[in-house]
Design a binder for these strands. Structure first.
Length: 475
RNA sequence: GGGUCUGUGGGGUAGCUUGGUCCAUCCUUCGGGGUUCGGGACUCCGAGACGCCAGUUCAAAUCUGGCCAGACCCA
């Protein structure tokens, strides 16, 4: 079997093949952009969902689930929103043989499904803050090339929707979401930047949008999530009001927080290497794979030891798989490396006799564990692996940004760029044209590297009111 | 929206220009047998494809048209 394409030179080819080889999805389903989740891929997704659920519930959100179909009449209530999504929605126009009076859209996102009901649920200031989330599939009719996890038509989507008393409370919720995301990103060992999108690129209907982007090589970026402040943009058309202390009816201020299976794609894209996928132990379908090494005259002692150890690890809460297939050990090593398993344990006749294991993590670090206290030693090895992965990620993150001072420099960017900008939209578009990408926006919080004070606008040369913005090429 | 190109077993490909030598090549995959087993094993047997519909022709994977699916470039 050949090596994967070069990740730096041919990123997309590398990515597609890494996903393919790892067996995360089956792309042969006969609808473009709708992939089948394999058992292996589904397990990764479920682990990821678990992370999201724990994170968002810790921040005071409760689960709900709204229907998949939205009546056209509800869908069209917020003008900007409709404009933003109209070209991308799937319509259900028939029920059996009957044409529907009111066509239904397959949700591309759930604002318009939820908010008419929020209007019924929310009466009083005592109902606020109101924070709910759901993890459901959404549908967008992508016309461009689709890519597993990145650009698809049926999206496994996480969305939190909240209603707050005031503008400030809504802004505060956005900050809480940022903190929640930081925890999620840490569990995935993914560094990222949060930046406020320029107005021309915010979510349709939003007051502002904070996007979460990862550098994924060269100037390429991948948006893995968004946090939006809607102000009253939706509560007015949907009439979500509460009665305040004085008995006045007021519109709620809303926020949303959206994440998707792109996070899984980002994990693959960011950590993966020439051997394939590299999973952090938090979402690895198998955290440990045990490869018993048998030879003709050693009998079943390696396999027995492997099974016994697997039982003990399972009891200790570790996700473990014993590969006792007929393949040769080397073939198994390559297989499980391509699938991203954090830790491989080899048990041959010698280890079996000693009560030890040889442990090799996905970053290639090798050690002998045992005898005695194998569970602790293996747990520790996983912790060290995650730390090493995070350290490696931080290092490549630092190298993923550089400052540009002139528009001409942007053309052959090999990193995401940091440029000084006056805030003028025309200048913004010049930057986008120069880099053949997008202005990602103004970072929330510190920049990945410190470029000092903003200089004159890279496009028009003005000095006043400039700020640093990130520019890259979104995938 | 405008243009260019592509469609061959489960995956990846050769063949197409110049129709016949193709009941279709090679790698991989899959089922079975044997020898193996500490970094992608070898060997034997077997399975599996010309996107769809028409047309031209003695003869179509190959030429023509339509359709469907997909990719890329430009706005």
């Amino acid at each position: 079997m050949a090596e994967l394409p070069d990740k730096a030179e041919h990123f997309i080819d590398w990515y597609l093949e890494a996903v393919e080889v790892a067996g995360l999805t089956d792309k042969r389903y006969p609808v473009k952009g709708m992939n089948v989740w394999t058992p292996y891929g589904f397990q990764a997704r479920r682990q990821l969902d678990g992370l999201l659920i724990r994170g968002i519930e810790a921040s005071g959100s409760r689960p709900v689930e709204f229907p998949t179909l939205i009546p056209q009449t509800e869908f069209q209530k917020e003008k900007e929103h409709v404009k933003g999504f109209d070209a991308q929605v799937y319509w259900v126009t028939k029920g059996g043989e009957t044409d529907l009076d009111i066509p239904l859209v397959l949700r591309p996102t759930s604002e318009t499904a939820m908010y008419p009901i929020f209007a019924l649920w929310i009466r009083s200031h005592k109902d606020l803050p109101f924070n709910v989330y759901q993890i459901v599939n959404t549908f967008r009719y992508e016309t461009k090339t689709t890519r597993p996890f990145f650009r698809i038509r049926e999206i496994h989507f996480f969305e939190e929707h909240t209603c707050q008393l005031t503008d400030e409370a809504a802004a505060a919720r956005c900050q809480e979401n940022l903190a929640t995301f930081q925890g999620i990103a840490e569990a995935l060992a993914l560094p990222y930047v949060a930046s406020r999108r320029p107005d021309w690129d915010k979510f349709p209907g939003a007051y502002y949008s904070i996007a979460l982007d990862l550098p994924v090589g060269g100037a390429r970026t991948l948006q893995v999530g968004t946090i939006h402040h809607y102000r009253e943009n939706f509560s007015r058309p949907y009439e979500i009001r509460y009665e305040d202390l004085a008995g006045e009816l007021r519109y709620v201020h809303q926020t949303t927080f959206g994440l998707s299976e792109r996070l899984l794609g980002a994990t693959v894209a960011f950590h993966g290497d020439r051997k394939g996928v590299v999973f952090p132990s938090s979402i690895a379908p198998y955290q440990v794979v045990i490869v018993p090494i048998v030879s003709q005259n050693s009998g079943p002692i390696s396999t027995d030891a492997a099974r016994t150890l697997a039982d003990r690890l399972r009891a200790a809460g570790v996700r473990v798989y014993v590969d006792d297939s007929e393949e040769r050990p080397g073939a198994k090593y390559y297989l499980w490396e391509s699938r991203g398993v954090p830790l491989r344990l080899e048990i041959g006749p010698r280890e079996a006799a000693e009560g030890t294991v040889t442990a090799v993590n996905r970053l290639g670090q090798k050690q002998r564990i045992g005898p005695g206290k194998l569970e602790d030693g293996i747990r520790q090895a996983l912790v060290e692996y995650d730390q090493a992965l995070a350290a490696q990620a931080r290092e490549s993150f630092q190298k993923a940004f550089s400052v540009a001072h002139r528009l001409e420099e942007l053309q052959d960017s090999t990193t995401v760029r940091i440029v000084s900008w006056c805030g003028n939209e025309a200048c913004g578009h010049q930057i986008e044209q120069a880099i053949d990408g997008a202005v990602l926006g103004t970072p929330e919080g510190p920049l990945p590297i410190d470029p000092g004070s903003p200089a004159e606008c890279i496009a028009c040369g003005k000095r006043e009111a400039t700020r640093w913005v990130l520019a890259g090429r979104p995938l």
